[in-house]
């Protein structure tokens, strides 16, 4: 009995150190800038999505901040690869998709409270559809330079 408990405990510890198990998923949502969404540095999370935040989303993606897929289920999925492009730090594919609503098919890995997504196929790209600028203006306010200088 004692050996059984010890073996079970050791197996459990070993399992925790192994790579997470992936599962195939298909998720529809918006490609967002995760830092602004999570940190609140720009305001409430809903102000950091869609057209209001599009320019900032471009800045952050180009700046190497991780992008996420904000799913219709309200969960954020950290995107690590899109259709073979592993440029998750300032890569071209994720930059092109900033603020777009997409349907992604791929592998989901859950680890220590975060969701990580390897997108194997962008099944649908609906472009930018989340029009938030009527509610929020632009976030941050200086995203559009003052035409008067």
């Amino acid at each position: 009995m004692r050996h059984t408990i010890l073996a079970t405990a050791l197996l459990g510890l070993a399992g925790a150190a192994q790579a997470a198990e992936g599962e195939r998923v298909q998720i529809t949502g918006e490609i967002i800038d995760t830092w602004c969404y999570y940190s609140g540095v720009m305001g409430p999370p809903e102000s950091t999505t869609g057209t209001a935040h599009h320019t900032c989303a471009l800045w952050c993606s180009a700046g190497g901040i991780p992008v996420g897929l904000l799913g219709d289920d309200g969960e954020v999925y950290m995107v690590l690869k899109i259709e073979g492009d592993d440029g998750s730090a300032s890569g071209d594919t994720q930059l092109r998709l900033a603020s777009h609503e997409i349907t992604a098919d791929g592998m989901l890995y859950r680890r220590d409270g975060l969701n990580y997504l390897v997108v194997e196929d962008v099944v649908a790209d609906n472009g930018i559809v989340n029009q938030t600028h009527d509610d929020w203006g632009v976030i941050p306010g200086f995203a559009i330079p003052d035409p008067e200088g």
């Binding site: 992936g22 998750s88 990580y116 390897v118």
Partner: peptide, 9 residues
């Protein structure tokens, strides 16, 4: 490397 750690890539 996150992709390596999670997905073995």
């Amino acid at each position: 490397d996150l992709l390596c750690e999670l997905a073995g890539d």
